[in-house]
Amino acid sequence: MNIAFLNPLFLFALAAAAVPVLIHRLVQKHGKVKPFSAVRLLLQSRQNLVRPERLKELLLLALRVLAVACLALLIARPVWLFPGVFSSGQEGARVLILDNSMSMAFREDRGERFELAKAHGRGILRNLNGKVIVLPLVPPPGETADGPPPDWMTPERALAELEAIPLSFGRGDPAEALNRAFRAAGGGQARLEIVVLTDLTRGTWEGLDPGRLRRIPPGLTVTFLRFGSDRRDPNLGVKDVRLVRGEAVAGTPARLEATVANLSMGDASARVELFLNGAKVEQKSIDLPAGEEGRVAFDFTLDRAGDVAGEIRLA
């Protein structure tokens, strides 16, 4: 098991561990030598007193250095890396897929899942020899599996590519990302090893259709590194919004209906709010069992003509 740091620049703060040593040397008291009569018992008594005092000072100095070093490491935020991925001494094609869907922005006690995943990815790439491909789970607009295959990169370039991947409001397509990895492997001519950094949210992975996977290479190895708890996170989302009655015309009563889905493993409740032009018009509560959907209706009347910015929020 390897270790990586979410804030590696703070490791330079380890140099501050030398400060207690410098202070110790600067304030250290040096005794003055004065001629004195040769009294054997007095000299022996002085040696017995000085030795325990020096040992105490050295132990205290070591504790101070250790405290400063631990503080620097704590600020650098170390994380453990999972073993057994991307064996650097073996031949084959290697692909790293990073889940950049918005669920990865969830912040835990250890930090944001997206940053944790990137930290693990950096640790994997730094220990890798040979070529590698880095792919986002949510591709850029207009990019499909039928397009040009991704480029093979050195680990150094792959690190830069990993850092450049942003969070996306789009929905991840695992089948498309895997198909792009299969194409890059040359249609099964090389042993392919794939590592997926993801939180395995239901909204992204429930739509994975094995029938969409094409040209699966022999000897394929796929490793999932999951970020998050064993249970699914509370996950409610607005799946659909539509005008079911009337028209969005000034002075005309209308009804808006929002469909809310509970993608969690347990029952959940939420407050559904309707905003028009940035102002909250109405709010309603909804309780949903696990895996169920519900509809919330809002009646409203526009007070003026022109463009209207509408928004449904969950709180």
Rank of each mutant, 00 (worst) to 15 (best):
R180C: 04
R171E: 09
A69T: 04
L6S: 12
R232P: 08
F12E: 11
P83E: 09
Q90N: 11
R171F: 02
M153D: 08
G266L: 14
H24Q: 11
V138G: 01
A117Q: 07
V249F: 04
S229K: 13
A62E: 06
D173V: 08
T223Q: 11
F10E: 07
V308E: 07
G291M: 07
G172C: 05
A18K: 02
E163Q: 08
G291C: 08
K284Y: 02
G266C: 04
R25W: 15
T144W: 12
G31H: 10
T301D: 01
H30D: 13
R157G: 09
L59G: 10
D307N: 13
G266H: 14
W205S: 09
L128P: 01
R295F: 08
W205Y: 12
G207D: 12
F275V: 03
M102R: 15
E115P: 02
M104E: 07
L135Q: 02
A258W: 00
P234W: 11
L314Q: 00
A258D: 06
I124K: 02
V241S: 03
R245W: 11
F12P: 03
S285L: 12
R231Y: 11
I286E: 02
F82I: 12
R51F: 11
A248H: 06
R54N: 06
L26P: 01
P136I: 03
R113S: 04
V195M: 01
D173P: 00
A145R: 07
V196E: 06
Q90C: 08
R183Q: 12
F12N: 12
F10A: 15
R255Y: 01
F227P: 06
V272W: 00
L178H: 05
P155N: 09
F5V: 01
V134E: 01
G237R: 14
Q47Y: 12
A297L: 12
F5K: 00
S269G: 13
R212L: 13
P140C: 05
P218V: 04
G228A: 00
V238C: 07
V134D: 03
A158L: 05
H24Y: 15
L243E: 06
L49M: 15
D146L: 12
V222I: 15
R122D: 07
R295T: 14
D99A: 06
M104N: 06
R51Q: 13
L220D: 02
E53A: 15
F275S: 00
E161W: 07
